[in-house]
């Protein structure tokens, strides 16, 4: 199942990006190859010197002509331009995009590979100057390429960042195991766990790791929850008769984990407080109820789904 979802995310992503790029080409969203007409005398001063900086005004009519798809009435855009003349009537130009310009300008800038500037060429035609910006194509193709590379780097950073915290908790867990505390903890919740995880021996270290993971999640201690969760998976894998295939206990545990009952939604409360909420903590109650409903139904779903023929494990091997 994860296979298909994974494939679908990539295929749908790439196809959508292709479609949007094709649409942008057809509709000429970025006004490629349409010259900007300017008749500003400031340019002349810059030209005499061979290069210079001037403020250029892109009129409403010009903006509308370039971006007919723009929903709002286009504003006038004033931007600072750096000009380098090659000869008397040809030059290159770099426009600094002001903060209040329509979003399409920043899109062009980022598609050209810059943050807040766009580049192009300028030429004299009769009494006016024509500016032709470097055409922008395959915006979404570039976006998904960048996103893919960034995500790959980020994934490794996340995993490396986990090493320290994992080492700490697995070390502490090992002490708890050696002292016999883990077995005591597991016995404490035995009435519940024999029903939730009938395939796991009630004194197994997996039970304690699950208990610790769930408690950490409930208290919003995400950093501590992951090491316990991964430890729980390792222990569950020890009693899994088919390595490489998820056991019933693993699926039940993950259903509990991904929907975990939350006592304190720390991040959400913090964001609410930061956005000036009159009562940031109002969501504690609603979150508790919603997450409890989710956990109960997740566990129920896991228990029911494990019996379906398409998910069932072969009898002889369980």
């Amino acid at each position: 199942m994860l296979n298909y979802v994974w494939l679908a995310l990539i295929v749908v992503g790439i196809l959508t990006a292709t479609g949007r790029d094709m649409y942008d080409t057809w509709a000429n969203t970025y006004g490629n190859d349409i010259p900007w007409h300017l008749s500003t005398f400031e340019i002349e001063n810059a030209i005499d010197a061979g290069q210079g900086t001037v403020d250029l005004t892109l009129s409403r009519e010009e903006v509308r002509k370039h971006f007919p798809l723009m929903k709002d009435d286009p504003p006038e855009v004033v931007c600072r331009a750096e000009i380098h003349m090659h000869d008397a009537s040809h030059g290159s130009i770099l426009l600094r995009i002001p903060a209040n310009s329509p979003a399409v300008f920043s899109d062009i800038a980022s598609a050209q590979g810059n943050d807040k500037t766009v580049v192009g060429t300028m030429a004299r035609r009769g009494g006016e100057w024509l500016i032709l910006l470097e055409p922008v194509r395959f915006v979404f193709m570039k976006k998904i390429t960048t996103a893919a590379f960034e995500a790959a780097t980020l994934a490794v950073q996340i995993a490396i960042g986990l090493i320290g915290i994992m080492a700490l908790w697995l070390g502490v867990m090992r002490v708890a195991e050696a002292s016999g505390l883990i077995v005591h903890l597991a016995r404490l919740v035995r009435p519940l766990t024999v029903r939730l995880f009938p395939d796991v021996p009630p004194d197994h270290p997996a039970i304690a790791a699950i208990l610790m993971n769930v408690s950490a999640n409930m208290l919003g201690l995400g950093n501590a929850a992951t090491p316990f969760g991964l430890k729980a998976m390792e222990e569950l894998n020890r009693v899994n008769h088919r390595p490489g295939t998820a056991s019933n206990a693993m699926c039940t545990f993950l259903a509990m984990n991904t929907s975990c009952i939350t006592l304190i939604p720390a991040t959400a409360v913090a964001v609410r407080a930061a956005s000036g909420s009159a009562d940031p903590a109002v969501i504690i109650g609603t979150t508790f109820l919603a997450s409890t409903a989710a956990t109960l139904s997740g566990v129920t779903a896991a228990k029911l789904l494990q019996r379906l023929p398409m998910f069932r494990m072969a009898r002889s091997e369980t």
Partner: peptide, 26 residues
């Protein structure tokens, strides 16, 4: 991805449908 990855499980069976069902109920 992380939890199953840690133990090398590739056949995830009903874990994803159960998790997404819980999300829907939430």
């Amino acid at each position: 991805a992380v939890y199953f990855g840690a133990v090398g499980v590739r056949k995830t069976r009903h874990a994803l449908p159960a998790g997404l069902f819980a999300d829907l109920i939430a």
